[in-house]
Amino acid sequence: MAASKISLRGVAKSFGPKKVLQGIDLDVARGESLVVIGGSGSGKSVLLKCILGLIQPDAGSIRIDGEETVDLSDRGRARVMRKFGMLFQQGALFDSLKVWENVAFGPIQSDGMDPAQAREVALAKLGAVGLGPDIAELRPSELSGGMQKRVSLARAIAREPEIIFFDEPTTGLDPIMSDVINDLIVKCVRELGATAISITHDMASARKIGDRITMIYDGRLIWQGPVAEIDRSGNEHVDQFINGRADGPIRMQVRKL
């Protein structure tokens, strides 16, 4: 088996008495698209934030291209972050900047690209997600939720990252716009040849954008397998989740993590 692009061993994280991640072991191969499913409050977002270094895990190892990233120095972290792109659940666009400035933020601020050249890159990336140059001068607040997601996707791919994370990419969107976003994610990931991890509780999205699915429950990964096998997982937690049944072994987390 080829070396993993992302490799987690024994990753644990607690907030006070609440154990959010309890020894996560996970490997994601280069170019693979992994979808992490799980209910609200199951630890999906914390898992992503640990890999990104936004949250420091209490224990465990996180390797990117074989390099240990837990306890990296600021400079080392900045170098590793260069490999990442991230689509946030709410878009997280900078509302003080215009649309094109949002997309060009990474190339200008982090890569030192000339603003005029970065604007061309931004327009090209906006085109790649189906947005014309007419919206480039608008502010994010002037866009619909679906368009904001697309701009956020354009920003995530602007630096042509090796790894892209998608945090609930279809939450809050209508089914048609959700499908548009799913198609764009598949297209962008394929074109870049990137490794992707998506977290979602939208099963239609999971089936469309993932090569492999893993389910997180109570801070542990309780099942992993190819997308095609999710319907015959033999795991009652997975069955309850993908069929959206209220009755079953899963008890929903009430408090947000």
Binding site: L54, D74, R82, D95, F105
Partner: peptide, 25 residues
């Protein structure tokens, strides 16, 4: 208010993912 809104809407995390240190920026 501005930085607080950026915090609760993940804009500060977004800065980090774009290799930009929020303290510096």
């Amino acid at each position: 208010a501005e930085i607080g809104t950026m915090r609760v809407t993940d804009q500060i995390d977004a800065l980090t993912t774009l290799s930009t240190d929020p303290f510096r920026y």
